[in-house]
Nucleic acid binder design. Structure first.
Lengths: 230, 230
DNA sequence: GCGGTCGATGAAGGGGTCGTCAAGATCCGA
DNA sequence: TCGGATCTTGACGACCCCTTCATCGACCGC
């Protein structure tokens, strides 16, 4: 949250648009329009994330990313108009943390930005979510309850993280699917039921009458922390 | 939740379908069938979201979005039959918040609508409705009265939310059905009676002589808050 | 007061939602 | 490539809720 982000794209209109969305999400944004300026800005301000167009004048996104990787730890998301697999692999080979192909929806870009920020957060303590005796360590992908380690599959972890991050908030199955697997993922809502059931077996004292992972009939699920039984 | 949404599509059948789904989700929908009407409607009512077809007579979706962006803050989702890159980039360049390509699944459209509404909601706490000691928390899907939690079924929750949102306003049974469940929902008006009765049992001190959920003979029901006994 | 209309209430049915299990599909590492 | 873990789906039953119906009482105009 509230990260410093560099946006580099020679399409000034697009850069301004991306800036708008990122700022709306509470981030501080600097925009530049060529690779050289991007590199200079990164060296000066060390942003939390750089969103780089691949095709830019002076220095292209690949080059910038290459130098950044050699010099430090700035996470990178590529914007690319190309869709061939070669380009994508090349982008990731240079150490980009993610890429978004144009045309993209603001929603998709924002989701990937937040995901990368979560993954690369400098302060390890910031990536730990607590709710009562339940602790979720995003970085280590670890769940512990009352000191006891709880093994979770990737899908279970994502669903649980979303629920625990906002205790008592009711999530529809659709929204849980989105939060856990992204927007383009199409699975039946029934899948969520199964994951929740498996989580209950690992977390609940009596899985048959859940106290933490609670069903809200006709709406969805919520996580209830020990303190606030709401 | 419960947002005012404008749907503009010259395909009246499709517009009606979209309207149905949005209303079922609890939103208030206005449909128009050309760009000029869409623009006029936005200026008059300032909806929380505009769902615009790109290809429309008089004024197309691009034009409408362009003007809206220049004038204010109405979020826009495009419906587009086109899939070429140019059109999509153009859509984003004009500041659409998202786009959905036809043919689309209702589920996909709804997911994107909810996501945009979440992102653009001005006040995060706006999901709480108060009337006297009664509090309806949309996000937690929770009703509390004088601090005491009141368990509600989905139908009861929707009806109560509608009534409490507009204290002292009298709703006909038909209007309540529409507001709570959407236009396509066909249930006899007597159904409302039963829901109101069940609500009274949970909310009223003496359900036989209601003080909050009041019957207006020959018209319908209204919610009366403590302060304004009207 | 009287009749007709409207609303309150209880009970029954049918439909929808959820929990659970197991089998098939898919992913991933060895 | 193979094998195991994981994800997804479909089926089934249990349970809750919505809706409807029938009946009785309340209200209103006359």
């Amino acid at each position: 949250m509230n990260a410093r982000i560099l946006v580099a794209d020679d399409d000034r209109k697009l850069a301004a648009l991306v800036r708008t969305y990122l700022e709306r999400a509470g981030h501080q944004v600097v925009t530049v329009h060529d690779g050289q300026a991007a590199l200079a800005e990164c060296r000066r301000r060390q942003p939390d994330l750089a969103v780089l167009d691949i095709m830019m004048p002076v220095l292209d996104g690949h080059d910038v990313c290459h130098v950044l990787r050699a010099e430090g730890e700035v996470p990178v998301i590529f914007l690319t108009a190309r869709t061939t697999e070669d380009d994508l692999v090349l982008g990731l080979g240079l150490g980009a943390d993610d890429y978004v192909t144009k045309p993209f929806s603001p929603r998709e870009l924002m989701a990937r930005v937040e995901a990368v920020l979560r993954r690369t957060r400098p302060d390890p303590g910031a990536s730990v979510v607590r709710a009562g005796s339940l602790v979720i360590d995003e970085e280590r992908h670890l769940v512990t309850q009352a000191g006891r380690s709880v093994p979770c599959t990737p899908a279970e972890f994502r669903i649980l993280r979303e629920l625990v991050t906002h205790p008592s908030r009711v999530y529809s199955r659709q929204r849980l699917l989105e939060a856990a697997f992204g927007f383009d993922h199409d699975a039946l809502e029934r899948t969520v039921d199964v994951h929740v059931m498996n989580l209950r077996r690992k977390l609940e004292r009596d899985p048959a009458s859940p106290e933490r992972l609670v069903t809200v009939y006709g709406v969805g699920y919520k996580y209830v922390a020990e303190e606030q039984e709401g």
